[in-house]
């Protein structure tokens, strides 16, 4: 039996990797990918607590499924935005997207 702490450590590591990626990536696509990692870290946590706290109706799993679905949808929206920006500005570097800045 794998202890609960291993799952939680895996989730924390995934979160840390995702955060690091979101903060350091210069391209919009990289940031989107990192955010997906953070979401998956959250899913691992949800399922872990569902299992070890013994929720009988599997609410945590259902929640995780919802997160996966919404993450897919938000990834689509994000990629669409990136493509639209790229078409207009010929770049996907976030620091170049400064037209609204004063």
């Amino acid at each position: 039996m794998i202890p609960q702490s291993h799952f939680l450590i895996l989730g924390a590591v995934l979160f840390a990797i995702g955060l690091y990626g979101a903060l350091t990536r210069r391209t919009a696509i990289g940031i989107l990918m990192s955010i997906e990692l953070i979401l998956n870290a959250a899913n691992i946590n949800l399922i872990t607590f569902n299992k070890f706290l013994g929720s009988p109706d599997g609410l945590g799993q259902i929640f995780a499924l919802f997160v996966i679905a919404i993450a897919a949808a938000s990834a689509v929206v994000g990629l669409v935005l990136v493509i639209a920006v790229y078409r207009n500005m010929k770049t996907i570097f976030t620091e170049k997207m400064n037209m609204l800045k004063w």
Partner: peptide, 12 residues
């Protein structure tokens, strides 16, 4: 700064 990452960092 206008850089979203900075804001996220600060928020974090």
């Amino acid at each position: 700064t206008g850089l979203v990452q900075n804001y996220i960092l600060i928020a974090f």
